[in-house]
Amino acid sequence: MEILVCVKRVPDTAENEFELNSAGNDLDRDDLVYSVNEWDNYAVEEAIQIVDNVGGSVTVVTVGDDESEEVLRREMAMGANNGVLLSDDAFEGSDGKGIAAILKAEVAKGKYDLILTGAQADEGAGQVGGMLSAMLDYPYASLVNKIEVVNDTTIQVGREIEGGNQEMNEIQLPCVLSIQTGINEPRYVGIRGIRKVASVDVPVKGAGDLGIDPATVGKNGAKTRRVDYFVPDLGDGAEMLEGSTEEIIEKLIEKLKAKGGL
């Protein structure tokens, strides 16, 4: 099975405390730690496991700047066979549809049976997989937490739905799936693994290589755009307990007693 996994380089929510810049309209990006989007690691792991079982190859692709190459190499160190970087100034400012259109152009250059994305990334929209599938007229399932290959043209997938229940579907290939965390346990990538793929060629493709009209993507093609980041006035929030740990615990115990916690 030929599998394409779409990945993204994102600010790491576990490693950063996010602050606005001095103008107050963007994140302060100077010291942000970036990594591969958490959901994407599950997607790549799933792709590798499928190929281990039924044969084929895994290609990872991203739309981004030069620095995005590092996440492709990380996923190749996990075991993806190929990486492709889609990069062009014309791509900047794309909305979800713009990103999906760029990916679609790359999909058209290959012959993939299965296309995976993470269920969502840093922006939390969870949109690119569903859009890509509609553009390709492929079937789609989101929030997938189980994949079973039935034969060359059919797979069964489980979707995570409300209440911890699982919705089972049969889907014809080729298709697009967005992968939920917990579907597998992504393998660890060490420094040695990264070194092994350091010299592998990762082709870079721009709008011209992909046959994309620059006016249809990027800022110009976007119907939805982020205006700015801001800090809302959310009221007071929690009553913060301060002082020494001992003092805090004393205050907390009083409150817990009053509220039925003890």
Binding site: G96, K97, A125, Q127, G129, G130, M131, A134, S142, I161
Partner: peptide, 20 residues
């Protein structure tokens, strides 16, 4: 989980803006 499954593709087919 239903809206996320339906809405992005619907926006493409409607040729509409999408906001999530």
């Amino acid at each position: 989980t239903f809206g996320m499954d339906l809405a992005p593709g619907l926006a493409v087919k409607m040729d509409s803006a999408y906001a999530a």
